[in-house]
Design a protein around this nucleic acid. Structure first.
Length: 440
RNA sequence: GACCCCUUCGUCUAGCGGUUAGGACACAUCCCUUUCACGGAUGCGACACGAGUUCGAUUCUCGUAGGGGUCGCCA
């Protein structure tokens, strides 16, 4: 029998890293075992759930590449996949409990489920067998006075109806799992195999919640310049260690390596630095076109425009090893896109520091102007020749050219910059630096 | 408070009775280098504590401490 797993978020806000990783592990398990991954929206609390939040969760999952086989937009035999649309099913199940004498009403009409009050053991892939003694807690409410049902009830009913074989969810649910099993037993159904995965904590050890930095997928990752593959990879490393040489693994490799039994049982703290490292790794592997495609929205947001995609792609590609986030791209490449780039304060200082700098720049410009062709090599040769004529090292001239051509003190190779912007702009920029900055 | 889960470098972790306790991120130094980076090398740095079992505990058991979670007409 092929497995069936699900991600069952409640749409009360953006997709959160904890939820994303839960979805990720479920997805990994389904794909590894050739099973079915279901997305079920648990929107039974009309007061807190919003359609926007549901859309946001779907958006986040699509961005991460977590496609589902059954659920919203995908359909399936067990729909609808929004709990708010499944009232008839819940009513029918509720009736069964009623017929079995397992429910009773409160004064205001709320309905409670009578616990069996026996010892209940949760068989968990991560935590092992966890036995809960007969409870002394009050019976749990499963239906509100208005007739709407509550989480524990709908969650179990749907897991039965949707024939879930495994339930991978956050460890915060472990303490309530006996209640779910009590319900499964009341329905005469076999509980799924559980795997309660450890929580993701803030660096200070507190539980990571929606407000915390790095927690919202859309805000902290999609819009912050992360690549989905990097986030996918990093999230896997929180609570699971694939048996592999490297931690940097592709979606396919992670799928092949996934093993729910190997999920850790201790919580993990979120480490932004490591997430950035993963992102930087993935950024460097992109082709010029790929990098431009991914960085396009960030360049545009910074007000940069261009005519030729090939040139823009080459520009971003030239700084691929210098950034760890796509949002850092504009500050590294803006001068490729405009002639009115600013000169940084320390650049102005350095340019004016020595009186001979102007002479060096002029000599370089003259030599560059004579270049017959315009390649990185020819630019390099021209600078070298100019330096030699003045008996200085090319190393004395290069930084000045960098300052003039970019207004910055750091960036890709000077020859790369000159080659990309072309001969005309190169000479123009040197003149601009000479005139505007150095006053000669 | 009760119950449940957890505890190896700052962080993520490997380890599954005998190891100089390994790796990754971060940090530091050096090399490379026209800058900034990348890359390479090196270094820094951990078994929470106490008993017990054992010839021998990071590893097994119990206790303590600490962290996290649950105990909703939220999910």
């Amino acid at each position: 029998m092929s497995i069936r797993v699900r991600f069952a978020p409640s749409p009360t806000g953006d997709l959160h890293v904890g939820g994303a990783r839960t979805a990720l592990f479920n997805w990994l398990m389904a794909r590894k075992l050739g099973g079915t991954f279901i997305l079920r929206v648990e929107d039974t609390d009309g007061a807190r759930n919003t359609a926007e939040a549901a859309a946001g969760i779907i958006k986040g999952m699509r961005w991460l590449g977590l496609d589902w086989d059954e659920g919203p937009e995908a359909g399936g035999d067990c729909g609808p996949y929004f709990q708010s649309q499944r009232k008839d099913i819940y009513d029918a199940y509720f009736k069964r409990l009623e017929d079995a004498g397992r429910v009773y009403a409160e004064a205001d009409g709320a309905m409670r489920f009578k616990f069996s009050r026996t010892a209940i053991t949760v068989h968990d892939l991560v935590c092992g067998d966890v036995t809960f003694a007969p409870t002394e807690e009050p019976d749990m409410t499963i239906r509100r006075p208005d007739g709407s049902y509550i989480f524990h009830f709908v969650n179990v009913v749907d897991d039965i109806e949707m024939r879930m074989t495994h339930v991978l969810r956050g460890e915060d649910h472990l303490s309530n799992t006996w209640k779910h099993i009590d319900l499964f037993n009341a329905f005469g159904a076999t509980p799924p195999t559980y795997a309660h995965i450890p929580l993701i904590l803030n660096p200070d050890g507190s539980k990571m919640s929606k407000r915390d930095e790095g927690s919202a997928i859309e805000h902290s990752y999609m819009n912050a310049g992360f690549l989905p593959a990097a986030v996918f990879n990093y999230l896997c490393m929180l609570g699971w260690t694939p048996k592999a040489e490297s931690e940097k693994l592709s979606r396919e490799e992670l799928t092949a390596l996934f093993d729910a039994d190997a999920i850790h049982s201790s919580n993990a703290k979120f480490d932004l630095k490591k997430a950035l490292w993963f992102n930087a790794q993935y950024l460097r592997e992109l082709s010029p076109e790929g990098l431009l495609e991914n960085g396009r929205r960030f360049l545009s947001a910074a007000g940069l425009t261009w005519e030729d995609d090939a040139v823009a792609a080459a520009a971003v590609y030239s700084v691929r090893e210098k950034v760890s986030l796509l949002t850092e791209l504009p500050e590294w490449v803006h001068y490729f896109f405009r002639e009115d780039y600013p000169f940084e304060a320390d650049v102005v200082t350095k340019l004016k520091a020595k009186p001979e700098n102007a002479g060096l720049l002029k000599a370089a410009a003259e030599q560059l102007a004579q270049a017959a062709e315009w390649t990185e090599q020819s630019v390099h040769d021209a600078v070298e020749a100019a330096a030699k004529a003045l008996s200085v090292k090319p190393g004395a001239m290069m930084p000045l050219l960098r300052f003039a051509l970019s207004g910055q003190s750091r960036g890709p190779g000077v020859t790369t910059i000159a080659h990309l912007i072309g001969k005309e702009k190169t000479l123009g920029r040197i003149q601009r630096a000479l005139g505007e900055v150095m006053g000669v």
